[in-house]
Design a protein around this nucleic acid. Structure first.
Length: 570
RNA sequence: CGGGGUGUAGCGCAGUUGGUAGCGCACGUGCUUUGGGAGCAUGGGGUCGGGGGUUCGAGUCCCUCCACCCCGACCA
């Protein structure tokens, strides 16, 4: 392709709307443009990258025995009402009506549609197992689209669903997808970690997320270098510290006028935050729970939701009036001793190990000093409900955990019979009995792979594409197109590379060398062939985007050298 | 949905106490130049986010709506 003809409006200045490197570079390198918040146009270069990723995903899914189909983006409301998710998704869905007032939505995900297909077309154990997938655009009206393509409202996803006769079969299907995912992300040149994830109170197990490590990732993952344990923040656990051997001191009421938060208490009393226990009042499904965690800890609401056996969004911090009626005090003075009414008292596993702690007194402007678990108060439930922090002990081997941020590019988990039960996706087994199919669900965000690859592969000049997903393999740059020798040799090389099946660009624009070099660096094309002053001697330069230095070679060596470079890096 | 911020040329921005809208880059034309974002000359491009109001006069002041960005909440 000729740059003189390619729609490639690179930007010289950084667009004001972009905050992270991948977003900035995708705009600057003319891969995409924004149409609305979280809605993007892909230009030729961006589209090529997506196609490359798509092709890798397709090859690996096919290799793993999955079959490609294509589902409609428009889904009738009844189907989602049948599974109950019309209400679960709620405002996250783009909803629409047809001319006869029938309700539809733009598919945010396709469990129901796949299950519907299979329940109608698959009847016998002889037809199982079956894994089908599609590569298709999903629509989610995110509350807050963010960071360009990282969290957008329209995005391309590969979603696959497996149907098995039994749980052992599901394990086999699941493992195949796991392996396929590893191959996909390896081939895309990504550094990633597979972490254990929570699949919520609504069922599903063996939930695993593929996280591309990146400082701009929205997810936090905890991992252990010693034993390989890795989990996302919601799921991550740790070993509880041993019981403190301090002597118990007598309980004492202390005056703390207008001192409410842990921060304020720390400076008012000059005591470290780890000597406090804070009491948070939560409301869930009309009931009230008081949650105790150490002053410097945070409650993990996913763990709390699982403990209470409710959905995470059924839990909320209680309003002021509820707090007042439960504690008999203003907000900021809640404590475990003397709570009124029907309150479930939950203590984080760490709390019983602490001695002589400071808690709220359930009386405005007062706290209690030297409170001790067992002597002064007891919880209804003691459980791990806090977020892990850097340095906590690994639940498997006891070595310190590390925290890192990650971009979730893939998620696989075992659904079981959630949708087959809801929609009646049954089969007849060898004995003539009707049984629900056992399902698995496997997703990959294709646009996110592109963005994640840029996050992991860029410098201050631009993108540095891995060969496998680069929009083009090579770019030929004649330094001066008005020089006949340079132009002719560049054209000859471009021709030969193209004929050899190498995806090649030629920068035939009548621009200064600096502009062309800067664009080539910005676009991130892996191999650059510069045709300059030595063109008359048939000598050209070859430079890799990821390296500083270039080498000179005779023009007739170019095709073989480039071929070799591509083969060695895919 | 709460908090903060921004909307002026394709992009990045300036615009004073209210007085007929500018700069850089980009774009068109001509000449010179040509190995890391050229120089000179010349030209085109604006409902100043929309609507309403105050005023002789509004990019500027007031009201209102909208869009976009950031933080938080939320995210099968």
């Amino acid at each position: 392709m000729r740059l003189s003809q390619l729609l490639i409006p690179t930007l010289r200045e950084v667009p004001a709307e972009a905050e992270i490197p991948s977003h900035t570079l995708m705009l600057k390198a003319a891969m995409m443009r924004k149409l609305a918040s979280g809605v993007y146009i892909y230009l030729p270069l961006g589209k090529r990258v997506l196609k490359k990723i798509e092709e890798i995903v397709r090859e690996e899914m096919d290799r793993a025995g999955a079959q490609e189909v294509l589902m409609p983006a428009i889904i009738p409301a009844e189907l989602l009402k049948e599974s109950g998710r019309w209400d679960v998704f709620g405002p996250e869905m783009f909803k629409l009506k047809d001319r006869n007032d029938r309700e539809f939505c733009l598919g945010p995900t396709h469990e129901e549609v796949f299950t519907d297909l299979v329940r109608n077309e698959v009847k016998s154990y002889r037809q199982l197992p079956l894994t089908i997938y599609q590569i298709q655009t999903k629509y989610r009206d995110e509350r807050r689209p963010r960071f360009g393509v990282m969290r957008s409202r329209e995005f391309i996803m590969k979603d696959a669903y497996s149907f098995d006769a039994d749980w052992d079969g599901l394990d086999v299907s699941f493992d195949k997808m796991y392996d396929a995912y590893c191959r996909i992300f390896d081939r895309c040149g990504l550094k990633y970690t597979v972490v254990e994830a929570d699949s919520g109170a609504m069922g599903g197990k063996d939930s695993k997320e593929f996280m591309v490590t990146s400082s701009v990732g929205e997810a936090v993952i905890a991992y252990c270098d010693s034993c390989g344990y890795a989990a996302n923040e919601e799921k991550a656990e740790c070993i509880v510290e041993h019981e403190s051997d301090e002597e118990m001191k007598p309980l004492e009421k202390i005056h703390t006028p207008d001192v409410r938060t842990i921060d304020e208490l720390v400076s008012y009393l000059d005591v470290k935050a780890d000597k406090f226990v804070k009491t948070l009042i939560y409301k869930y499904k009309g009931k009230i729970a008081a949650v105790l965690v150490r002053g410097d800890r945070e409650v993990n609401t996913v763990k709390l939701a699982n403990l209470l056996k409710v959905n995470e969004n059924d839990i909320d911090l209680a309003y002021e009036e509820t707090v007042r009626s439960v504690t008999g005090a203003n907000v900021g003075f809640a404590g475990p001793i003397g709570l009124k009414g029907d309150v479930l008292l939950i203590a984080d596993a760490e709390v019983p190990m602490m001695k002589n702690i400071i808690v709220g007194a359930n009386e405005t402007d007062y706290h209690l000093k030297n409170a001790n678990y067992g002597r002064d108060f007891k919880a209804d439930v003691v459980s791990d409900i806090r977020k892990v922090v850097d340095g906590d002990k690994c639940p498997r081997c006891g070595n310190p955990l590390k925290l890192e941020r990650g971009i979730e590019v893939g998620h696989i988990f075992k659904l079981g019979t959630k949708y087959s039960d809801a929609l009646g996706a049954n089969y007849i087994d060898e004995n003539g009995n009707e049984k629900p199919m056992i399902m698995g669900c496997y997703g990959i965000g294709l646009n996110r792979i592109a963005a994640a690859a840029i996050e992991q592969n860029h410098d201050d000049k631009g993108i540095i594409w891995p060969m496998s997903i680069a929009p083009y393999h090579a770019i030929v740059v004649p330094v001066n197109v008005s020089n006949d020798a340079q132009r002719n040799l560049a054209e000859k090389i471009y021709d030969e590379l193209s004929k050899a099946g190498i995806e090649t660009l030629i920068d035939d624009r009548d621009l200064r060398a600096g502009v062309k070099f800067n664009d080539a660096d910005l676009l991130g094309i892996p191999i650059r062939i510069t045709v300059g002053k030595k063109a008359s001697d048939n000598i050209v330069e070859l430079k890799l985007r990821r390296d500083e230095n270039s080498i000179e070679l005779n023009y007739d060596e170019v095709v073989n050298k480039v071929k070799e470079l591509i083969i060695n890096s895919i």
